[in-house]
Amino acid sequence: MTAPAGIVLSGLTKTFHGRGKSVTALRDVSLICPPGSFTALIGPSGCGKSTVLRASLGLEPLDAGKVEIGGQAPERATAAGITGVAFQDAGLLPWRSVTRNIALPLEVLGRDVGPAAGRIRDLIALVGLTGYGDALPGELSGGMRQRVAIARALVSEPRVLFLDEPFGALDQILRRQMNIELQRIWAETGVTTLLVTHGIDEAVFLADRVAVMQAEPGRIVDVVDIDLPRPRETALFSAPHFHELCDRIAGVLHGA
């Protein structure tokens, strides 16, 4: 694995112009994710957290501000394949098998898929889908599709991983399972990760630091360090210190 790269967001500002009304989606959002760190971005619906992530990938033009991934502009970083991404909806192509869906980023990047066959097999195993390589997305459950999306995000051997509520549509039990798996994958690959979520427990469980956003205008109001030891396990969900941290973030979220 190549060395992880950091993410530097400085002064992101973005206004959406609707009919007769403008919404300041982001105002002066700055955040630094050091190489190899796990950062969670949390906030209420419509606070602009997904916009931060899309802008970091160069998918959303900004009015002002700058994104640097490993010292590069996002367009260059994504085209170089140092980023990986998974969205809330898996966004799989229904006519491609699991294996070929995972290979999609390689094709977009213009890389050879053949030599990657072994790695794709490993990734399928990593997300616990061994034996499903030839299955079509329509034959999988929602949770399995989401795991395919995670495997796809890792296929280009990214140095930076962007996750936009990847488990948002899953039920609580499956979600915790996926959280543990994600922690393991992060630990094994050491990839710098930025996770957008609206689940406080998920953010605290996974992240080194939690950045809390608020809406109208979308801005970061606090960054909370999570000093829980790793590896973190399921028992943590009922630990008192875990709840203390959750309560503290909830307090910031609700403006206390």
């Binding site: 990938l57 994504t78 085209a79 980023t83 799989l92 999609l104 977009v108 990047l109 796809r152």
Partner: peptide
């Protein structure tokens, strides 16, 4: 799915 493709340049 289009976003995924665009996210890889």
């Amino acid at each position: 799915a289009a976003d995924v493709v665009r996210a890889y340049g």
